[in-house]
Design a protein around this nucleic acid. Structure first.
Lengths: 196, 196
DNA sequence: TGTCTGACAGATATTGAAATCTGTCAGCGA
DNA sequence: TCGCTGACAGATTTCAATATCTGTCAGACA
């Protein structure tokens, strides 16, 4: 029916991500997004109530995309300790890869994380739930010994903050990092395992 | 001999700390420091080669002062697990207290930490050495089971980053913090202890 | 002799006027 | 009717002129 493409939230998000990548968080404006879509900037406000909500939506998309492999890992089966280790290492890798490949989007994410906005809070909670899932599996398998699964999942998440929170991103490239990650993971796994 | 008080590095540091506290990191200038001491700013450069070195020296003094109770704790004796727990909790308290009591100096410290300057690096290494000392004691006492003391000390330090690195300071006031700290500490202690 | 001053060059920060942006909305056109 | 436009008010950002600061150094002063 409609030969001119309709303006959907999805198309706006796509364009916003492009603009964000091209100009960076500081320079990207709603007018730029509208220009990229060849509409007036008023139209963008028909789909998103504010620039902040638009930015949050882009960040959410970006985070969800990054999160996908981790969801799969948590849902898979196999021995919990190996799975947890794999899960943590995958999370670190994903973050590190993002810093290198997509620094503009990463800066956006960092800015969001520093404002501790709702989107990031929800994302963190989701991550913790995934860890909790693996911990529960480990208890069922008789390899983990845990009082409070939720609190311990949070503790694992907190303990690894240095390797997944963007505030520490500059340190991820240091040569001593891998061995420090190894030490951290083995300390945590020992803390979770049942004593032989 | 000299009735006019001589200009010493110590006096300059004192004055700098005052100025820093009064004006904040962004506004404090070498001229302000000189004015406070009633000398020309050229004189300050006789004792410190640059503004950066002056700032680093102030930060070092501040960190060393904050560090004192921790050195004592590490050097004391008693069961290592309790001592480590006390040490970590004391470190968290000191930091949290600083954020509340001395926000200007804390901002300076944060700025320094974010630049990952030499002074902060040295301070961190010192902290890790203190942890390592307690871990060694624990091994001697037969309560800790640790492969590589240095690496594990670093892992304990890394694992607790969320509660001592200034980048996370905003989150320290949250009501769920204490219980999360409890969960983290007990996870770490379990990871260190020998299995019964 | 050794410390301090004060003038200086270049770098950095401040300021206020002008430009741009955000968010709203009355009205246009399909 | 419904989505879009474009003009508008107030907030924010830019930009360039101006002021201040950093770091140096020749010379005063004790």
């Amino acid at each position: 029916m409609n030969e001119t493409v309709v303006l959907t939230p999805e198309r706006i998000l796509e364009a916003t991500e492009d603009v964000l990548r091209r100009y960076g968080l500081a320079k990207a404006t709603v007018v730029d997004v509208a220009r990229a879509l060849d509409v007036s900037h008023g139209s963008v406000y028909r789909h998103f109530p504010s620039k902040a909500s638009l930015r949050d939506a882009v960040a959410k998309r970006w985070l969800d995309r990054a999160n996908e492999p981790l969801c799969k890992l948590a849902a898979s089966d196999g021995p919990a300790p190996e799975r947890l280790e794999k899960w943590l290492r995958t999370m670190f890798e994903i973050k590190q890869k993002k810093v290198c490949d997509d620094p503009e989007m990463f800066a956006t994410y960092l800015a969001l994380a520093q404002e501790a906005r709702e989107v990031v809070e929800a994302y963190k909670n989701k991550q913790c739930d995934l860890v909790a899932k693996i911990l529960s599996d480990g208890i069922a398998q008789g390899v983990f010994e845990i009082d409070d699964v939720k609190a311990t999942a949070r503790a694992v998440f907190d303990a690894t903050v240095r390797y997944h929170h963007p505030a520490h991103a500059e340190e991820w490239a240091k040569p001593e990092c891998p061995s420090r990650i190894d030490a951290l993971i083995s300390l945590l796994l020992k803390g979770l395992r049942v004593c032989k």
